[in-house]
Nucleic acid binder design. Structure first.
Lengths: 204, 204
DNA sequence: GGAGTTACCTGGGTT
DNA sequence: AAACCCAGGTAACTC
């Protein structure tokens, strides 16, 4: 077994990243009051659901087979911490909508998500079954200075990380986008430091 | 097969009636504010429900069998137009009541039913599975003169229609009751005209 | 019994 | 205009 694989579990802190995966955004949703309220479910917009989280026919509700087709459980890695979030994902034929149900309300509670905040889903480049979740607060009363408020509906930040393509020599490559703009590492040391200083100003 | 049964489909307009079915009133309900409000359900009084719309045990809610026992869909013919109305009919164990749910709100909206209006259910004589629905407005601001206000809780009108019992000679027999009183055709032409003038004064 | 979960349903907006 | 979405509901079951 390769060293990289052995340490996949050890990604619980951004300062301790030992393994990097380049991720690609699938979609972002600005959550509605219902998504973070008592309904305990997140509606996944249909075009994104069908593109990124396809369900087999038997996993959908069957007309005339009520009670069958309970969907699937999807696991998402929280990008900053590596923490795993498992959500039941299914199709509700009555409303013709795709939803995350079981597990979602815990995420809302622990992240203190509010309506207007954004949650986004990504997958690993080259391993599309490996899923990631990110979230960003709406700039506002809880957020930073007013000058930043408009930033939240461009994904406030995106953090790409991957193993070095040549196999480890030179360390991992990290890339950061802030408010839709790529940030480049300002000097050659960036590639090796575990605490790139440009993380600090992000809306986390 | 009898003639009456062959033309069951061709009853889409009162002016084009080609087939008549004698109906028998099962019951009438004066609708409550909840019946026509946001709850989207009509409570069927228990004694009428159990007499006329029996549910099999498996169509009622079963403890421990989620997804089973969702009631049934009943189809009612609107007597004047032949239009079909389908309502989900089920038993709510929490309130121990029988209700029409899905489909009912559409009827309320399209007929502009208000609290105090009456809806009544009937079935065909000799074919009790063939169901009919009628409705009548409460006399009031929308209704005719005050002198008629008490009339609505006698079914405001009832329209009976059937094939001529001798097999078609002489045309169909039509009978109308207004406010509980039989109206007889004033002359021999009534039986054959497509637009009997005595329809006009009805509370429609 | 209460909180959480599932499975229903509908109005209003949009396409 | 009709179909489709989906935000926002309700009812009932599970544990």
């Amino acid at each position: 077994m390769k060293e990289e694989e052995e340490e996949e579990h050890d990604r619980n802190d951004i300062t301790g990243l030992s393994n990097y995966v380049e991720t690609e955004l699938m979609f972002e949703k600005v959550v509605t009051p219902s998504d973070v309220g008592k309904l305990n479910r997140l509606v996944i917009p249909k075009q994104h659901a069908e593109k990124h989280f396809p369900l087999q026919q038997q996993q959908r509700q069957q007309p005339g087979r009520v009670g069958e087709g309970k969907g699937v459980v999807l696991s998402f890695e929280e990008e900053r911490t590596g923490r795993l979030w498992r959500f039941r994902y299914s199709y509700w034929s009555s409303s013709q909508s795709y939803v995350m149900t079981k597990g979602w309300s815990r995420f809302v509670r622990e992240k203190r998500l509010r309506a207007g905040d954004a949650v986004s889903f990504a997958h690993a480049v080259g391993a599309r079954g490996r899923l990631f979740i990110r979230w960003a607060t709406r700039a506002g009363p809880r957020g930073p200075a007013a000058v930043l408020q408009r930033a939240s509906f461009v994904p406030a930040w995106e953090y790409y990380y991957r193993n070095h393509p040549t196999g480890g020599q030179g360390g991992p490559t990290k890339r950061l986008r802030l408010f839709g703009v790529n940030l480049e590492c300002p000097n050659s040391e960036c590639a090796d430091t575990d605490e790139p200083s440009y993380i600090i100003p992000l809306l986390l």
